[in-house]
Design a protein around this nucleic acid. Structure first.
Lengths: 189, 189
DNA sequence: GTCTATACGTCGATAGAC
DNA sequence: GTCTATCGACGTATAGAC
């Protein structure tokens, strides 16, 4: 996030929306966090819901880019899949964790048209996953009887959920966590 | 749920809290759903938060019992693990799905002392999972290098998440879904 | 771009009649 | 056990000065 008033508001929103939820966070909370009055917020955003949408929009762009880079640095299907898993775990539990948690867990607070817009942004993201899974299966890493669509959903759930229990500073690093997650996808490797 | 006014309120609460979230659901919504006035609710429950706690309490009792029965009817470690997975998938996507989704996704709307109370109820539930996973590993079904605590969390996430995308009436049944999930735990089987 | 002041709706919860 | 009526707090968003 940049250091404009708008950027500060989005950072504060990610923080508060994650910890208190969108509904419980008031525009007064938001204003206090960045040191302005609540009325001033509406100079930067038309509604509170627009703030939520912008938080989600920014984190999708950032993380799609991170995943794309991870794929580029990988040399085989196993590494590619591991890179996607590590990227998503990092998104959830690293620097963008708060915004990512908002994207995942405050979904229904968006109005329907905002949901449609965000869903469109996510589609590129999901395409990378499916392509990588197909490649891994063709390389014999994933058993042919497994449903790749279902596998992706299971992985998405497992990875998203980690934000509830995983502590980045603890004994297990993100790389090891990613290896553990990779085991769930691979055919006994 | 029984057909008392209290039971009808809890059923309506599970429905509304799941679809709109706890915060967005008003006591007036709740009252309308069961055909009474909002003031009448507070004859049955002291606060709105108490309704949430009771929904969670009931669904935990119901599903702990379902899991216990599933274990009893299983004859080997593989069947036991499959039974737990199927039970949890059924809890999320079957008749108790709405209450279960509330238990999982409205957690932070509980006051801290209610959270502690519900957490205690869940501990038996989680104990069954860990015991079953240990048994499966000792039987050689799960690779020794896998962290069972992490595996349980991954499975919990994957299974919980299914309520966002899985459609019970569709082409894939819960039994097949459970088999797909089992693949994530087992050592290439 | 931020302030003050406030409009205006809705919220959870209560009181007391029936 | 449900009703009607309402309280007091708090919510988003606006208006207009600076």
């Amino acid at each position: 996030m940049d250091d404009t008033p708008r950027g500060r508001l989005l950072a504060a929103a990610a923080h508060l929306f994650r910890n208190k939820g969108f509904e419980r966070t008031t525009v007064r909370d938001l204003a206090q966090e960045v040191g302005i009055q609540s009325g001033s917020i509406f100079h930067h955003f038309k509604t509170k819901e627009e703030i939520l949408r912008c938080v989600m929009e920014e984190v999708i762009h950032f993380n799609t880019e991170r995943m794309r880079e991870g794929l580029q640095q990988s040399e085989n299907p196993r590494e590619k899949l591991l890179a996607l898993i590590r990227s998503e775990l990092t998104s959830i539990n690293g620097d963008t964790g708060e915004a990512m948690a908002v994207l995942i867990f405050e979904w229904r607070c968006l109005k329907p048209d905002s949901q449609a817009y965000i869903l469109e942004l996510r589609s590129h993201y999901e395409r990378m996953w499916i392509d990588t899974l197909v490649e891994a299966r063709d390389a014999g890493l994933i058993a042919p009887e497994r449903d790749l669509f279902v596998l992706r959903r299971f992985l998405a759930g497992a990875i998203s959920w980690s934000h509830y229990w995983y502590k980045p500073g603890g004994p297990m690093g993100v790389d090891e966590l990613a290896e553990q997650a990779l085991h769930m996808a691979l055919n006994g490797g």
